[in-house]
């Protein structure tokens, strides 16, 4: 445990000294929480036409929770729910930036061999790196979600908008899935790190993580998928299985012998 905390201390110390990296990590949650709020405030401030548009009408047909809402409130719920899924991007994007520098950067600086020569176990090193990345990623995700929630409460034209957007299922999804999604992203970065020596290339490879998210975003947008406590728990179990698989893959690759003899 002591060595894990030493690795975390070193990782955070390095992060604090890399201003550009720190900035790029901080700018993401700010952007992803503020942009949806601009939309929601825009809807609240724009005068309603009184007649719902075609998309809203279609959504009203598929989503019974919207029945009885005003045009502005329904639009806020539809947009708010879709954009709330953006928060799930954060636990994937932030770790891909941090882990790229943490592992590929270490490889580039040739600091891995001196570390591996110490009596640290591979698990201690891997867990130190995972926690050093996972903790800020999850905290920033939750922090951005709080800003988003406060913004939704402030911009809601009807109190029911808040309860439909910041729903217990969404909160549960963020609490349970953010750490798991971060773990998947970090594990993937460990695997990518064995094949590339450039942090930016590693980040580009990690773009594949966004694909399942886009499917989720579109499904939410068109009402194909809506999260309730049951679907949230099912999603959590599926993501947990993927996280376990990704972690197993990372552990298989992150071995002293492989790092020194097989990593490119």
């Amino acid at each position: 445990m002591q060595k894990i905390s030493v690795v975390i201390w070193k990782e955070w110390l390095e992060l604090l000294k890399q201003r550009m990296l720190l900035l790029s990590v901080l700018i993401l949650p700010i952007t992803l929480s503020v942009i949806p709020l601009i939309s929601l405030f825009g809807i609240a401030l724009a005068p309603g036409t009184g007649e719902p548009d075609e998309l809203t009408l279609r959504m009203l047909e598929t989503d019974p929770t919207l029945i009885g809402l005003s045009e502005q409130a329904a639009t806020q719920v539809i947009i708010g729910r879709s954009l709330s899924t953006l928060m799930l991007l954060l636990p994937m994007l932030i770790p891909s930036i941090l882990a790229a520098y943490s592992i590929v950067g270490e490889k580039n600086n040739r600091t891995l061999e001196p570390i591996l020569a110490t009596p640290i176990t591979i698990w201690e090193l891997l867990l130190g790196k995972i926690f050093a990345t996972l903790i800020p990623s999850v905290l920033l995700t939750w922090f951005a979600s709080m800003i988003f929630s406060v913004g939704v409460a402030q911009s809601a034209v009807d109190p029911i908008v808040f309860s439909l957007v910041v729903s217990p299922s969404w909160v549960l999804l963020l609490l349970l899935c953010a750490p798991l999604l971060s773990l998947i992203a970090i594990s993937l970065m460990v695997m990518i790190s064995s094949r590339t020596s450039d942090p930016r290339t590693a980040q580009q490879y990690s773009g594949v993580l966004v694909v399942p998210f886009l499917a989720l975003f579109v499904s939410q947008m068109f009402g194909i998928l809506s999260f309730n406590p049951v679907t949230t728990l099912i999603a959590t179990v599926i993501i947990a299985a993927f996280a376990a698989l990704a972690l197993w893959g990372a552990v298989m690759i992150f071995q002293r012998d492989s790092i020194l003899t097989r990593w490119n």
Binding site: Q2, K3, V6, W9, K10, L13, E14, K17, Q18, N109, R110, T111, L112, E113, P114, I115, T118, P119, I120
Partner: peptide, 19 residues
């Protein structure tokens, strides 16, 4: 194989603690 962003002392304390 040293950490460029860290000071000499921080580098040594980090490795010392791993030992």
């Amino acid at each position: 194989g040293l950490y460029d962003k860290l000071s000499a002392l921080q580098n040594l304390v980090f490795f010392g603690r791993l030992y």
